[in-house]
Amino acid sequence: MNPSPSEIESRVLSIVADALDQPAERVTLDASLVDDLGAESIDFLDIVFRLESDFGLKIPEEEIWQGSFDGVGDDPDALAERLAQLKVRRPGFRWDRVPDRPTRSDLPRLITVGTVVEYLEKRLSGGAASPE
């Protein structure tokens, strides 16, 4: 049986708090994993592994980003165009945290605890990760 939305949420909150060594009260749904909770690149590997083990699924990187950033390279215009598309599909990301001329290394700053919960809810309800 699939876990209920509230169970998914509480499991995600606990995994993130544990992986980032943060007190529960700081791990809120709108917290950016990077800017608010101090996640670094290796923490994303850790969190993805913990989520995959806990929920029994695989999380491909392209799914988080609604497609691959491959080929975009460091061209700022191509990246801006790709981000504009992503913004429509991932309204819950912390778009306010992205600088005017973002680079690819700014991407992880978009991800919040809430967007992780939302992604898992969609995956586990059997639907696509998000509407196309």
């Binding site: 290796i42 590997l45 850790d46 592994f49």
Partner: peptide, 9 residues
């Protein structure tokens, strides 16, 4: 495959 990637680190 069943090891946390941080294991190596």
């Amino acid at each position: 495959a069943g090891l946390n990637p941080l294991w190596l680190l």
